[in-house]
């Protein structure tokens, strides 16, 4: 509650003195434990902002809404550490001018919410480094461990079963802050690179395309996983890809606003174990 009040007053102050044109945060949702994205544009509306441990969604994807930042005015946004990392990537990939963004940083342990110190992207580098150095215990994701113990055939069977439920609603893509392409490759139909059908092949095509496009870019916010209406454990795919790029290139996504994209940059000392 203290953090919520602190940020509410800050939102009011920034809106009142014109420092920001909008605050992107959370409001109560349709059930007691749901929170929904809220776009606050006036002093009065700021009282609708809530901040508690149920505020989970990474809102940073809204920052690249067409036209939102084109007037060069500033926007404040509630972000967890993963959200700050995805903001860094959006800046590194030239999708926004990070100077226009005021961060209302927060994190939670259990039901306790605390604020993060700093309000500009560059001020969180120590925090992000410490997250890199202290990865979550393997036991926190038993299913991932289980899948890694499988042989390729078993793994294929596992994902075939999971993807068989995919309906290609693209909620995973739409909820992902990294999926900002104006026209996704699967929507490109001249030529039709990827089948639109959600049969086995089409579902594999989509999910593999998604996995590769997010390698070294996914911050593990879990938006895709939570938004999947058919409960495919998408976070596991991304977690695996993140582990690969960390191991091969020591790349931890979203370290800074100037970090080079791992699959679009080259260093002489890069591991070349994949070249036969």
């Amino acid at each position: 509650m203290i953090t919520q009040e602190k940020y509410r007053s800050k939102a009011k102050k920034l809106l009142a003195d014109g420092s920001v044109k909008m605050v992107i945060g959370y409001s109560p949702g349709s059930t007691a434990d749901r929170r929904r994205p809220l776009f606050v544009r006036s002093f009065e509306e700021a009282d609708q902002l809530v901040l508690d441990s149920n505020c989970i969604a990474n809102l940073s994807g809204y920052l690249v809404t067409e036209g939102l930042l084109s007037d060069e005015k500033r926007v404040a946004i509630f972000l967890r550490p993963e959200g700050i990392r995805s903001l860094n990537i959006l800046a590194a990939e030239s999708q926004l001018n990070v100077d226009q963004i005021i961060i209302f940083g927060f994190d939670s342990i259990g039901r306790e919410v605390s604020s993060l110190s700093g309000e500009h992207a560059g001020e969180f580098s120590e925090l992000i480094s410490s997250i890199k150095e202290n990865p979550p215990e393997k036991s926190s994701e038993p299913l991932l461990y289980q899948i890694e113990q499988m042989n390729p055939q078993e793994r294929f069977a596992f994902w075939k079963e999971e993807f068989s439920r995919c309906i290609k609603c693209y909620a995973c893509r739409q909820s992902c802050p990294m999926c900002y392409c104006r026209r996704c490759i699967v929507d490109s139909n001249q030529p039709q690179w990827v089948n639109t059908s959600s049969h086995t092949l089409g579902n594999f095509e989509w999910n593999i395309v998604r996995a590769f496009h997010l390698a070294g870019r996914c911050v593990g916010c879990g938006n895709c996983d939570r938004s999947c209406p058919v409960n495919i454990p998408l976070r596991l795919i991304n977690a695996r890809m993140a582990a690969e790029v960390l191991e091969s290139f020591d790349h931890f996504a979203g370290m800074s606003t100037t970090q080079e994209p791992v699959l679009a940059s080259f260093k002489k000392e890069d591991s070349e174990t994949f070249i036969l």
Partner: peptide
């Protein structure tokens, strides 16, 4: 404003019926 433009509401809907014809 917060709609992210996914199709989950339409695909889970028991009455939404739009379809596309595709040659594969």
């Amino acid at each position: 404003m917060r709609c992210i433009g996914c199709g989950s509401c339409t695909y889970l809907c028991p009455t939404c019926h739009c379809f596309d014809i595709q040659d594969e």
